[in-house]
């Protein structure tokens, strides 16, 4: 008798599993998967998504980086290098200024400690996440744009 009971129990447990998959098959409306390359145009990453590191520039090509190297010190992987230059300000002082903001993309772990450590809020992790390149050298990026200036209120 327990033999038959075993058979009944196992068959019914199997059938209930099949009922679930059958239910999903018959009531298939929308795929739960992300249709990634197709939805590139409509895909919106959340505002905090940690993608490409950017030095924010405004329309007058001004950034807020004072070249203090706090991000370079905060970076755990050494992917940020700040190259400085000396510049004479209007009141005649010889001050440190940012020359080149080098970000080695290939070494970055996207921990956003640099963004957190920046005293002037000059950095941001942008939403772009498609980084594939054919040449590894292009992953070493200069973040400050050509001819960009420090914003006047920080000078």
């Amino acid at each position: 008798m327990s033999y038959l009971k075993d058979i009944y129990r196992s068959m019914s447990s199997m059938l209930s599993g099949m009922q679930l998959t059958g239910h999903y098959f018959m009531n298939f409306r929308k795929a739960e998967t992300e249709q990634y390359p197709d939805n590139r145009l409509t895909l919106k990453m959340s505002p905090r998504f940690k993608g490409e590191l950017t030095l924010l520039h405004n329309v007058q090509n001004m950034h807020k980086c004072t070249g203090c190297s706090a991000c370079q010190l905060a970076c755990p992987n050494g992917s940020i290098t700040i190259l400085e230059k000396r510049e004479l300000t209007e009141d005649g002082k010889n001050k440190k200024r940012l020359q080149t903001f080098v970000w080695q993309h290939s070494m970055c772990t996207f921990c956003s400690l640099c963004v957190d450590s920046c005293p002037t809020g000059a950095l941001k992790m942008e939403q772009r996440f498609e980084f594939t390149v054919a040449d590894r050298k292009t992953l070493t990026k200069t973040l400050n744009k050509e001819g960009s200036q420090l914003a006047p209120d920080l000078r």
Partner: peptide, 10 residues
């Protein structure tokens, strides 16, 4: 296609 239907994908 049957597998996809049961697994909620295309």
């Amino acid at each position: 296609k049957v597998a996809a239907g049961m697994q909620l994908r295309l």
